[in-house]
Design a protein around this nucleic acid. Structure first.
Lengths: 101, 101
DNA sequence: GGTGTTGTTCGATGATTGTCGAACAAGGGT
DNA sequence: ACCCTTGTTCGACAATCATCGAACAACACC
């Protein structure tokens, strides 16, 4: 099954923003902000794996992440280059705000 | 009635993003991007005035706009300085993307 | 082949949200 | 005082969404 990763320019801005406007998804994006490639299972933020899978799908279909299969795992990474090119400053601005200590 | 304009630092990032993640609200923000101060009624984007009032409330409570009374009108303006300081690049990134011609 | 691990998909459910018309409130003008 | 303009608030309604457990699929390993 093709992972359905859209061309970022074809995704409406509102969809990108909506994808980022969720606490769980924002934590996932933060975890990927260093450019690392992580398996889905590594994003354990207190939700079930069904919910996690749902959030990863939202991020992927909003053009924020790419996913590739690796054995039984799927490795997720942030499409930072494309995002920074199309929306310069957006990711930095969003990621800069750390959760209150 | 106090217009309930929160301290921007007290608003969660997700709320700011959620406020921007709507087409009507994004059009309002675009209309205010030049720093102008406009009455609520000037934002005629094909929704009823009840809906428009609702969207303006969402923007205000997300810390994106300020409102002041002026006669029977209410003038709305973007809190651009504060936004640019707390989320540098965010507004620019979002506003740069013009709807595809 | 069987078992375990890793994710996805499928309803279902409760909460949130965008939308509207109608009613209401506050001002300005005549 | 009356009316008109401008906005807000109040239900109500439909749609979307975040969440879950259970079932399913793909792969690795013994």
């Amino acid at each position: 099954m093709e992972p359905h990763e859209p061309d970022l320019t074809a995704v409406p801005v509102t969809s990108v923003l909506a994808a980022l406007a969720d606490d769980v998804r924002l934590q996932i994006v933060r975890a990927l902000a260093d450019g690392s490639e992580s398996p889905c299972g590594s994003f354990d933020f207190g939700v079930s794996k069904a919910t996690r899978s749902h959030h990863l799908k939202v991020l992927r279909e909003a053009g924020l992440t790419r996913t590739r299969a690796a054995g039984t795992s799927r490795l997720v990474r942030l499409r930072r280059d494309e995002l920074d090119q199309l929306y310069p400053g957006l990711l930095d601005a969003v990621l800069a705000q750390r959760p209150p200590a």
